[in-house]
């Protein structure tokens, strides 16, 4: 990595980078999501056709990625609020980040079956 492109590194910087990247991804998804939902004003068939593509295994995997981005952004956002408003927030920012990561990992494990279950049944039979 060229000199001068790394801010201070470590937990503080990388959580900031991840917050940014997930935020931008979620915003672009949101734009598409409002557009696809707007199809209910066109016709039930148009809406159901598009939603049918959302039930394919590949999109299920993308959905799992979306859940990952949203959960990280939500949990780390609460950490940012704690850093800003809690007196000891800045002192415990590292511990809070690892709490966020642990909580995120547990929730992502829990989301495997609900989000990817139907895709697995479609791919491997029920």
């Amino acid at each position: 990595m060229p000199a001068g492109t790394l801010y201070r590194g470590r937990e503080g910087m990388w959580s900031w980078v991840a917050h940014r990247v997930t935020g931008v991804l979620i915003f672009f998804f949101l734009f598409v999501h409002v557009l696809d939902t707007a199809l209910v004003r066109v016709s039930p068939e148009a809406y159901d056709t598009v939603v049918a593509t959302y039930k394919t295994p590949i999109v299920a995997l993308l959905e799992y990625g979306l859940v990952a981005a949203i959960l990280f952004h939500a949990l780390n956002g609460l950490r940012v609020i704690a850093v800003d408003f809690w007196v000891k927030g800045a002192r415990y920012q590292k511990q809070m980040l690892w709490t966020v990561v642990a909580l995120w990992a547990v929730l992502m494990l829990g989301a495997i079956y609900p989000v990817l279950g139907h895709a697995a049944r479609e791919l491997f039979g029920s």
């Binding site: 039930p44 039930k55 939500a74 989301a111 279950g117």
Partner: peptide, 22 residues
């Protein structure tokens, strides 16, 4: 998170979503 629970987790996840559900 409430939205995700309703749409993707509860009651069959994404496979239940369609015009009738909306």
């Amino acid at each position: 998170i409430g939205h995700l629970l309703i749409q993707l987790v509860l009651d069959g996840g994404v496979s239940k979503i369609g015009f009738a559900f909306v």
